[in-house]
Write a protein that binds this DNA or RNA. Structure first.
Lengths: 199, 199
DNA sequence: GTTAGCATGTAAGGAGTTACATGATTTT
DNA sequence: AAAATCATGTAACTCCTTACATGCTAAC
């Protein structure tokens, strides 16, 4: 069971909220992970097949009436035969393991974990945030070294690029520091922790 | 001649400074495009082959002494047979076309163009910066709509993700505005334009 | 003489995309 | 009846990566 892609994690995390079919998963991805995270069907359906083959999700056995046999359904929308997937116990285990152990070196990977932070303990959340912070600080040092070493040889535009990269990284670090602070003080009002377990 | 990848543009741009072999190109990419831009050889060499087949670069005919025939060279480092590439006139044309017409929707694509801004006219530079700015402003609107539409349904952590995404985008826009301003005022001190044509 | 660094290249594979193919249901 | 939307899936392609294979030259 090789390390899962961000998409696999996101699908598992979404299915934890309840059984869903592919088309719906795609729509919800944009809501849960931010409007910029979109996935094509050509990527999503093969992903679902992989997850099913690994036993991390399964096709839901349509409880009660068999959808396919009904004609002219009673207001319950029938539509085309949809495959509704649900997460398996193995999928849950895998999801939690991946969520905690996930690499923090890649922005996408980190953001995918972050979007499902509500499923982690406060300690695990702080751990991931700290690891991400350390990584960004190392990145910042790389930027500084690069400026130091190449100072004379680099183009003014490259300089702008590097300086802007540093500013963006510094802003990311400040964001992480605020989040860590929020977690530590337990926050008592509109903060993250207990909220939005809306299901 | 399909639209070139960022790597192809970067290689052509680097070769405009003078003939180079693959190993050296890789080292210089990090200097010109910032420390985070690295490419593996497994990606670079096939790219060079593609560029040669398209006639955008050519193997330099070793002027003067033929490297391979010399034994025990006279202090000039011989090393292993290296293939030195140089940009062709077609490559130059292609480079300029791609540089000006390049998409601004993708961060990598834009940054690659930006790193070679010194080869563009002030008007072309301002044009690209403005197009990038418009794109980021549209992205910002997408973020805002997403918050508006999903307000009630989204998790507090997703909210943090979206808000941070917006802050980062706003910072990017301010950076672009500063750059546009610099270009317009023609800047008279340490600004971009005339500097660093150091070769 | 062995290790480190310079130098080029191939093979396999991962993770995504677009375009295509198909078909059901709802709205106009 | 046509068009839009819901719904699933495959095929071909892109662009990158890691791991491997090879070999030269300089330094210890």
């Amino acid at each position: 069971m090789a390390s899962a892609s961000s998409l696999e994690i996101a699908v598992l995390g979404l299915l934890k909220e309840g059984p869903m079919h592919g088309y719906e998963i795609r729509k919800r991805l944009g809501v849960t992970l931010g409007p910029l995270w979109t996935v094509s069907f050509g990527s999503l359906y093969p992903c679902l097949r992989r997850l099913r083959k690994s036993g991390l999700v399964q096709e839901k056995t349509t409880d009660g009436a068999d959808r396919r046999r009904r004609k002219a359904a009673t207001s319950t929308k029938t539509r085309r035969s949809r495959k509704v997937y649900e997460i398996t116990p193995e999928g849950e285990t895998h999801f939690f393991t991946e969520l905690e152990e996930g690499a923090v070196y890649d922005t996408d990977t980190f953001q995918t974990r972050f979007a499902f932070f509500r499923y982690l303990s406060k300690e695990a959340r702080i751990g991931l945030l700290e690891r991400r912070k350390v990584h960004l600080q190392e990145k910042l040092i790389e930027f500084r070294d690069s400026l130091q070493t190449a100072k004379e040889r680099i183009d003014a535009y490259t300089m702008q690029l590097i300086e802007h990269g540093m500013e963006a990284t510094e802003q990311d670090i400040r964001w992480l520091e605020r989040l860590i602070d929020n977690e530590r003080t337990g926050e008592g009002g509109s903060g993250p922790t207990g909220s939005t377990r809306n299901r």
